[in-house]
Design a protein around this nucleic acid. Structure first.
Lengths: 140, 140
DNA sequence: AATCATAATTGTAATTGTTTCAAATCAACC
DNA sequence: GGTTGATTTGAAACAATTACAATTATGATT
């Protein structure tokens, strides 16, 4: 809990109960949760929590660079509290998002978009089927 | 028009009026249009066209590898009839999507996701502000 | 401690992109 | 020309997200 609070302050975000809870959840659960997963998980500790607050908080965190927003899943947005540049793999069977580590150089040193005057985000996404889901498919 | 029909047949898709129109639009307009842009543009030539048909057609084209689906814009999906691997840049001011050409090697030769048994899509996205929009911002 | 001003949270309602589905239409084949 | 299956259509349902006004919490000031 203490780490999440410090984390927020480092990014210049006032650490309310709700914000600390969301940040903490993201730091302790490296599962790239959705808004609903975060909301459902925190509801037991903060019974008055509103889904809107989760949306607001995640937007705020993203604006301050404290979380990554993953648009890898067409149906819903995933969030990542681990902001060091890395890629992601989405399994279209189970819907899970996996981290893909890669060299800094590999991620950063590229052709820059010609029309871009300013770059705020970059993302490298893979989609497919994870090993676990492929095994299940073979069995059935 | 003839090219679009051939294009569809090359991917094993039966070329109905609607499908040819959608494919043709994508080949002739390298603007990464949305469903609504395609729908609106084709309505004058096919007055009975349904939005659902555009959705269906794009799904079919994607399943056959005839178009790229771009999840770069959180608010809506963009489509690209140019399927050769390349990256994309999204301007969050004007909402336009730009192509970013890059080496084949650069796009393909990478660390592969550990958990991935099968990869169906890969995408490299940049977000930011385009030169045009930055100029406008400076003026005002 | 009480008051005040501002910031944050909440819950409902509205919005919007997309999907579902059954009916209508079309196309190809006998 | 009729039959069968594929395609298209449009309305309704759905789900993620946003807008917004009301409520509640927070921090500063006296």
């Amino acid at each position: 809990m203490r780490t999440a609070k410090e984390h927020l302050e480092k990014f210049g975000i006032r650490p309310s109960i709700q914000r600390v809870a969301v940040m903490s959840y993201l730091l302790n659960n490296r599962t790239h949760p959705t808004v609903d997963e975060i909301y459902s998980a925190l509801l037991s500790t903060i019974p008055t929590l509103s889904r809107t607050t989760v949306y607001n908080t995640l937007k705020l965190l993203h604006d301050h660079g404290a979380v990554l927003v993953l648009s890898i899943d067409n149906s819903t947005t995933h969030y990542d509290g681990y902001t060091h540049p890395h890629a992601h793999f989405f399994c279209s069977e189970c819907g899970r998002v996996f981290d893909v580590e890669m060299d800094d150089t590999e991620f950063v040193v590229r052709n820059r978009p010609k029309n871009a005057a300013l770059i705020t985000d970059e993302a490298l996404y893979y989609k497919g089927v994870c090993t676990e889901c492929l095994h299940k498919q073979k069995q059935s």
